Computed example of a mutant assay.
Amino acid sequence: MTTIFIDGAVGTTGLQIGERLAGRSEFVQLTLPEEKRKDAIARRDALNAADIVILCLPDDAAREAVALIDNPHTRVIDASTAHRIAPGWIYGFPEVSGRAAVAEAMRVSNPGCYSTGFIALVAPLVKAGLIPADWPLTCNAVSGYSGGGKSMIAEFESGEGVPPAWRTYGLRLNHKHVPEMRERCGLAIAPLFAPAVANLFSGMIVEVPLHLAALPSAPTAAALSDALAAAYEESPIVRVVSGYDEGTLAIERLADTDRLDLFVFADVANQQARLAAALDNLGKGAAGAAVQSLNLMAGLPETAGLRL
């Protein structure tokens, strides 16, 4: 039986992880009373008593938590941005990093939600040589407002005024997900990333447009789809959807699930393609990914407790 401690269990991601672990007899969960949640000594004791710690904290607090661990056996899954490109940390995307690497890791960094969609689409195509590592990629994406944490949830759900139906952001072009998107795809050039938020709780669409004829190998849409299908053929979570002939793709498609659907839409005549990923920003984009890594680290089936 594996002892776990969620530091930051009352945050958005922490609560979602807790829901996925509820009733699971494979784990014993350490908890702190409300008055001890920010007590350094109580946190240190819990962090060092657990077999696996899941950090659902702001970046600086996550770094502090890791520093409080003073034994060689406690393993960590960090859901913050703090360690996503840090040396010695395994990226918690088993389908890309490798299941064995995650299962054996002492330190795992949970991917960002947008990053999950982008990396799922791009990393296999760079590896297959269909997209050059130095190609200038763009990424357009929209998320439910829960991706902004408690402050954004409060903004949209306060009942004060009329919240926007949709808004773009990240206009300074320094979004915190970009470094991991570049690093985990092996890109020489940072992608131009255009994120947005919509007035719904959860859900996500991530897109990467491509001019196929401009790419050095001029790949066909079928070649892109085949490469993605080959990359995820053994995954029970990531699916490359074929035969989808609708003209729209809803952001709610995979809301409240831990799945990830990938698409290749193409205009053969004009040699253009739109790669798209549908997921839940709180599912495969956060809590579902953390639980998937936790399962592997505990020697359990990777889908245990997930919403599939």
Rank of each mutant, 00 (worst) to 15 (best):
A123N: 02
E160M: 07
A128W: 02
I131V: 13
L173R: 15
L137F: 09
E160N: 07
P124M: 11
A123Y: 03
L130G: 11
N174Y: 00
W135F: 04
E160W: 14
A154N: 11
G147K: 08
V178Q: 09
N140T: 08
P136H: 10
T138C: 01
W135D: 00
N174G: 14
D134K: 04
N140D: 09
V142S: 07
L121N: 07
G149I: 14
I131T: 13
F156D: 07
Y169E: 01
P136M: 06
A128Y: 02
L125G: 14
P136K: 06
A133V: 03
G170C: 13
L171G: 02
V126W: 09
S158A: 10
L121I: 06
G170M: 06
A154W: 14
L130D: 10
S143V: 12
I131E: 01
G170I: 11
V162C: 13
L137D: 02
P124F: 12
M152A: 08
G159Q: 11
P132Y: 00
A165N: 10
K150R: 10
A133Y: 02
N140P: 00
A141H: 08
L171H: 15
L130A: 09
K150V: 12
A154V: 08
Y145A: 06
G159Y: 14
V122Q: 03
L173Q: 15
S158I: 05
K176M: 08
V142L: 03
A133L: 04
K176I: 14
V126I: 07
P163K: 01
A123G: 03
L130C: 09
G170P: 09
L121T: 08
P124T: 08
P124C: 07
N174S: 13
E155Y: 15
N140H: 09
V122I: 10
H175E: 15
A165G: 13
H175C: 15
I119V: 15
T168M: 12
V142G: 00
K150Q: 11
A123C: 02
Y145E: 07
A133S: 14
V162P: 10
V162Y: 13
A120M: 07
R167L: 14
